[in-house]
């Protein structure tokens, strides 16, 4: 699946998008997998209460299942307007 990062999450991880092969069942499982990869991921995901997640471009929750999802995006709380 495609994993996208925006704003300071993108800056900390150092890339806007990557394709990942994962067997993670939920978003939280995917976060655990990413955290274990490298320090920069651990930094970006150190406090998930400061993050939001979208699944296939719909806002979602960290306990949501990833079954059938093609695009996951992680980002800080939005500041539009």
């Amino acid at each position: 699946m495609d994993v996208l990062y925006f704003a300071w999450v993108r800056e900390r991880i150092g890339l806007p998008k990557e394709t990942i092969d994962t067997s993670a069942v939920t978003v939280a499982d995917l976060v655990e997998e990413l955290r274990a990869r490298e320090e920069r991921y651990a930094m970006a995901f150190s406090d998930i209460s400061a993050l939001r997640v979208a699944l296939d471009q719909e806002l979602s929750e960290f306990d949501a299942p990833l079954d059938g999802v093609r695009e996951v995006a992680f980002f800080p709380p939005m500041t539009g307007g």
Partner: peptide
């Protein structure tokens, strides 16, 4: 619309 745009539209200001 403004309340939703502020907190739920995926924009980030720097």
């Amino acid at each position: 619309l403004m309340d939703y745009l502020k907190s739920r539209a995926p924009f980030w200001k720097r």
